[in-house]
Design a protein around this nucleic acid. Structure first.
Lengths: 208, 208
DNA sequence: TCCGGCATCACCCGAATTGGCGATTTGGTT
DNA sequence: AACCAAATCGCCAATTCGGGTGATGCCGGA
């Protein structure tokens, strides 16, 4: 697993280098104090995971993430910073970062974060996770939990994709009438009575 | 730190009990296989953290979380389940859960999750964190400008609300045929050919 | 001034959707 | 064994939708 570091603070960068270098399943493939020639560096090193500071000379860390994900979508990026301002956190995540850890994070947690993002997962330090959570809970959306069966969810997904009853029936290998029946049940449970409302509610309640 | 468990699977509940009981800084103050008399139980036990299963007899786990947070906002809840469907995850978080861990989570991670949520933080297993992350990152890759006219946008809004052509015609005080015509134009511009797709695209591209 | 985009209205037709009435067979819980 | 929810299938009627092919004005930019 190849790791690249972008961090301007020399002491901190060195300690990161040390952590990575002394870990068996990781290889430190690059360590930089600025984001100059970002694409060339990434292209040359082909890292699996990039540790990125937010306050870094050259291009700032958030823009750097965006650039990396745009040109090298397979590269996973983990933000590594002292800041936990809401705007920086959310901007980083929207830019494509898969992890966000604070600089006071213990070394073993840093390694854990790297492994998680490398494996396609995500990792946040608890205080960051809490911020993200608040973002959900602040929605006044009094989302009653709608208990759809698996079949009903599947049919609903296909409705969202614009398939007709007949096409869904084909795709699920089931009779047209069955789909008909499922759709009716979905409408009932969602308290809607048209496809448009059902699709809208499905997307807004993240049933898809 | 007082922990209460709500989990209907006996074997799994016992293993959780064991994990908690053998941890120095935690005290198992209750363990239940259903959510009956939920408020009385919480009131009597005064737990700091509740581990809650989603599929649990009585009231389902998500509604239970909502009830707990409503009457005992200081109690932190961590979901503990085998499900990772989007709807269950987001419904849980919106209901007030501070953590969401899968049942295959290692014991030390479970303890870590409990400590984090007790301390006012949040904890998600990586795959759940990834789902949450995707919720932020989905959308930017649409540079394709869709220029709808005002009328078309209005008609589209009403379609999203589930109105039929005729109802829209009434609402906008215009002929049914006009609505028909607008809808056809919208379909053409959105490159779709069904109401479902149009509604989905409208919401996802924030045209509404 | 002419052209193109927009809004409006109109007709046709085949297919899809809705809603309401059923039914049987599973699978899991009690 | 009894029960229940879910999944499956069926019929019917009214309405709506999707696609095609028009037409009429109105307005603003070339």
């Amino acid at each position: 697993m190849k790791i690249a570091i972008f961090e301007d603070n020399a002491k901190f960068r060195e300690s990161l280098e040390c952590i990575i270098a002394t870990t068996d399943d990781m290889e430190l493939c690059g360590s930089f104090e600025d984001t100059h020639r970002l694409q060339q560096r990434i292209q040359a090193l082909q890292p699996d995971v990039v540790l990125m500071d937010i306050n870094i000379p050259g291009k700032n860390g958030i823009d750097a993430v965006q650039e990396i994900k745009e040109h090298f979508p397979a590269v996973q990026v983990c933000m590594q910073t002292v800041f936990e301002d809401n705007d920086k956190v959310f901007a980083s995540l929207c830019a494509g970062a898969s992890g966000y850890i604070l600089k006071n994070t213990a070394p073993d947690k840093v390694l854990q974060a790297i492994r998680e993002v490398a494996g396609g997962g995500a990792f946040f330090t608890p205080s960051i996770a809490k911020k993200i959570l608040n973002n959900f809970q602040q929605q006044p959306e009094k989302a009653e939990y709608i208990r759809l069966t698996e079949k009903e969810k599947e049919v609903l997904k296909h409705l969202v994709d614009g398939l007709s009853y007949k096409m869904i029936a084909d795709k699920v290998s089931v009779s047209f009438h069955t789909i008909h029946s499922h759709v009716k049940n979905v409408y009932e449970k969602l308290h809607v009575n048209s496809k448009g409302e059902a699709v809208a509610k499905a997307i807004r309640n993240k049933l898809v």
